[in-house]
Write a protein that binds this DNA or RNA. Structure first.
Lengths: 128, 128
DNA sequence: GCTGTTGTTGACGCGAACGTAAAGGTCATA
DNA sequence: TATGACCTTTACGTTCGCGTCAACAACAGC
């Protein structure tokens, strides 16, 4: 019974998520992560791990780091007054709409690529 | 009965698609569009229009311009020999897999954001 | 004590996707 | 003819998301 849950070094996390240490330091500089320090070295908590997972998924779906930071800040209100809750809800709804639109665009592209693949296959067969 | 179908000026197209003329010239320099010239000024055909639509949708779903150019080139084979058809098919299948993965990531994020929105709403209601 | 591994903070570099002048051609219209 | 609208090329500037040294500290093992 030492402290409060596991901690991770920067290489632990970088390996676990397939990013470089540089990336993690950059994310910290951009306000996306806030690891504590033991001396000078960074110690990442499980909360930091979860935040990182969020960051990477956000990035994968096309959010900019600035947008991701916004969303993360909405997630960690601390003390949340009504107008801020409303603002958070509004922004969240906004993001949802954008994400759904993006998914629709992807679906449309997938459909077209599937058709293209089908014509390619038929041309290959007819050539056999 | 003049020529072969409508043509568009650079501002026609930029307005129609909500991009700047600079963007269209840039896409041409990158080999994504190939408008003909009347004198020095660019004339875009309906085929160019369709290509542009493809480019913008590709960009919206996260493709780089280089990837988009690849796909466009696959679409316009001219004379297609078997190994090139096979290569085109392979790349297309690859893109499809990537797109489906991205869509899944988006779905997961949408789900989480919906839950977050729900908790925000309940906190706002309980506060009423 | 030396080497190696892992960590740190700058600071400069880079590719992608354009933005933004700068300097000028062409055409219509007043 | 000159004023403006629209087009051109050339070329440097900018933002984002890191990569890549450089120079140093801290600790482990031989």
């Amino acid at each position: 019974m030492e402290g409060a849950g596991e901690t991770y070094t920067i290489t632990d996390l970088s390996r676990a998520f397939g990013v470089t240490a540089r990336t993690l330091r950059f994310y910290e500089a951009e306000g996306l992560l806030h690891p504590v320090r033991r001396g000078r070295t960074r110690l990442y908590s499980r909360a930091d791990r979860a935040r990182l997972a969020w960051v990477l998924r956000g990035r994968a779906v096309g959010f900019s780091l600035a947008e991701i930071r916004e969303l993360l800040d909405l997630y960690a209100p601390g003390e949340a007054r009504r107008p801020q809750l409303e603002a958070a809800l509004a922004k969240t709804v906004e993001r949802l709409a954008a994400l759904r639109a993006q998914r629709d665009a992807i679906d449309a592209t997938v459909t077209e690529l599937e058709q293209f693949a089908a014509t390619l296959r038929s041309r290959l067969e007819g050539d056999a």
